[in-house]
Amino acid sequence: MATELELKLMVHPNFLKLACDFLDNFCQQSADTNNSRQPTLALMNAYFDTEDALLMQTGIAMRIRSFGSRFIQTVKTRGSSRIGMHARGEWEWEVENDQLDLTLLKEVPLPDVLKDMSWCKNLIEVYRTDFQRQVWNIELSNTQIEVVCDNGLVTSPYGKDTICELELELKSGEETGLYDFALQLAEHIPLQVSVVSKAQKGVRLKYGKIEFPEKPKSIENSLELASYWYEVWLVYWEAMHFMQDEALLQPLSHSMERLQACLPIDLQKRLMELDAEIKQVTLGDSPDLLERLAGEKSIGLAMLTIGQWLNAQAF
């Protein structure tokens, strides 16, 4: 079992090539031979669950990934919240074909409701994620990061969704290095922090629900409140683009106001200025408003700066 810690970044399709070019140039201009582009992969992934979504409800994602002639069976758990980052338990096995080997699950600490394994006979393929993955190995201040650029689709009987994102996965070193490198990217490329996994995108196609973080138990803890409103902000941002619904700008702005009240003065000022910038972009009747917002570098820079501060306080 490995613990996967990654920072996921939304990128509008218009800026995907810009992101890849930046990463190529970063590696080419680096004197460190550990910075390098790796072979591009075509990944085809089938996700499995019961008809009543028992695995999803217990925080489990199970898939078979195929690339070339290889097949990898993976189980991921919901893991712990890391304020804008994804931290999950992950088990992987190479298998002979595209059929699940359920005997391997004995290595996974399953929730009590799954331990009798009776649900296994009801498994079906519920959605797919098929995408091209470009890969770079990056070393920054003794932190080793795998950066991937994924471009493709999530498909299910209930519809489809796009995959257009960067993922920064910590391989070794300090996790603050993920934010340090993400901020370098954000200086050159419009991007935003995402808390929605590919598996969550697949589930969302069926249920049409936007997942919000759990509300803090105590409103007296300002850090918990800040973390909550930060992730609500991220969820509204992603949902607005998924649903192509500009009406979500209002709750987006509200979440920024609530977050602002929980931050130190310098970050309060930054968020207030960002809210004013967003409102300025939305003035007038623009058919490409969401695309224009996705092109604002200041949004991603603020998300990353605040996320880095919150993680520094919490951990």
Rank of each mutant, 00 (worst) to 15 (best):
D116W: 06
D116H: 07
S118D: 15
G159S: 03
D130I: 13
D150V: 01
D161Q: 12
I145T: 02
S156E: 03
V154W: 09
C149I: 02
E167L: 09
N137S: 08
V154K: 08
M117N: 14
S156A: 13
E125M: 11
S141F: 06
R128Y: 13
V126S: 10
N142L: 05
Q134R: 15
V113L: 12
V148T: 11
L102I: 12
V135C: 15
N137P: 05
T143M: 09
Y158E: 07
C120G: 12
L105T: 09
E165P: 01
W136D: 03
Q144C: 01
N151P: 00
I138T: 04
Q144H: 03
T129C: 12
T143W: 10
E125A: 13
V148Y: 06
L153K: 07
N151I: 05
Y158K: 09
S156L: 08
K115A: 10
S156H: 07
L114K: 01
D150N: 04
S141W: 01
C164P: 11
V126F: 07
D112S: 09
T143E: 08
C120Y: 13
F131P: 07
T129R: 05
P157Q: 00
L166W: 01
S156T: 11
P157T: 02
V126A: 08
V113T: 13
E165L: 01
P111N: 02
L166V: 04
P109W: 07
R128S: 13
K160S: 11
C164I: 05
C120S: 15
D112C: 03
R133I: 12
T103I: 03
N122T: 15
V126M: 14
Y158F: 07
V154T: 11
L153D: 08
V126C: 13
L105E: 03
S141E: 05
M117L: 15
Q132C: 14
E139P: 01
V154R: 11
C120N: 14
P109A: 10
K115R: 14
S118W: 12
N151D: 04
L105W: 03
T162W: 09
K121E: 15
P157W: 00
N142P: 00
L105I: 10
N151Y: 08
L105F: 08
D112V: 07
L123S: 12
I163T: 06
F131I: 05
F131A: 10
K160I: 00
G152A: 11
S156N: 07
T155A: 07
S118I: 15
V113M: 11
C149E: 02
I138V: 11
D116P: 02
D150Y: 06
S141K: 12
T155E: 03
V113H: 10
L123N: 12
L104V: 05
L110E: 01
S118A: 15
V108Y: 06
P157F: 00
P109N: 10
G159T: 00
